[in-house]
Design a protein around this nucleic acid. Structure first.
Lengths: 118, 118
DNA sequence: TTTAATAGGGACAAAATTATCCCTAATCCC
DNA sequence: GGGATTAGGGATAATTTTGTCCCTATTAAA
């Protein structure tokens, strides 16, 4: 977690949820973990365009915020699994609504951009 | 709008909606405009902690993405008003859901942090 | 006549986020 | 032995986002 120099103001719920899932891959991580992709290495393979480092950092933050739980198996080679907390699950419908809107937006946006060509 | 060096991948709806309302004040601007705060100077007064420049930039982006419409009155002193487009209005329930979750999260998060004190 | 209000651009600085590269340590496979 | 796999830390660089400061031009009010 990085240290922030500007004080964060959580005046409204938006600022809060953005803090939680605003990271580039966070919502996707939540989605994948919910789908059963639990181990760090699996997650990395599932999102090859994300750097391993950033995925790790974002997983740490999700854990810190109580969205996911990290379970460490004391084996070798190391084994770790992530699970959504009950609280993390409460995020699913919201994320789904966002994703749905985004998908619908895509075509509308393309239409808008076509018009601007005229 | 800044030039981006990394190609953006809009693989999922989340990436898209984040592009639209991911900016620090964007969702709040949408909220305020919907509430009837229309003129740039009013918006600046409504969000005094945001710099004028950034509000302007984010308004431009919202306009570019077809969420709001800028209406210029050719008067002096200049007068400009922003309105949600029909499409921008479709965003309202999603933003409301996010805000709601965020507000509920706040107390849960505070409880979680207390536990970590032990 | 100076000051405030109006809407915003340009240049640049600061901060935050994301990406790259190298490192540990154990075990299994060839 | 050499290499792959496992999970992840440290240092640092690149990129993106946000913030600061100064500027234009017009009208009305003090």
């Amino acid at each position: 977690m990085y240290e922030k120099k500007m004080p964060k103001s959580f005046a409204c719920g938006m600022a809060i949820i953005m803090e939680i899932i605003g990271g580039k891959w966070k919502s996707y991580l939540v989605y994948l973990i919910n789908k059963g992709v639990r181990r760090p290495s699996e997650l990395q393979r599932a999102v090859p365009s994300a750097s391993r480092r950033v995925l790790d950092l974002q997983l740490r933050e999700l854990e810190f915020h109580g969205i996911i739980k990290r379970v460490i198996y004391h084996e070798l080679p190391p084994k770790v699994e992530y699970f959504l907390t009950e609280f993390g699950e409460s995020l699913l419908p919201v994320v789904a609504a966002m994703d749905k809107w985004g998908n619908e937006y895509q075509s509308v946006f393309e239409q808008l951009m076509e018009k601007k060509q005229d």
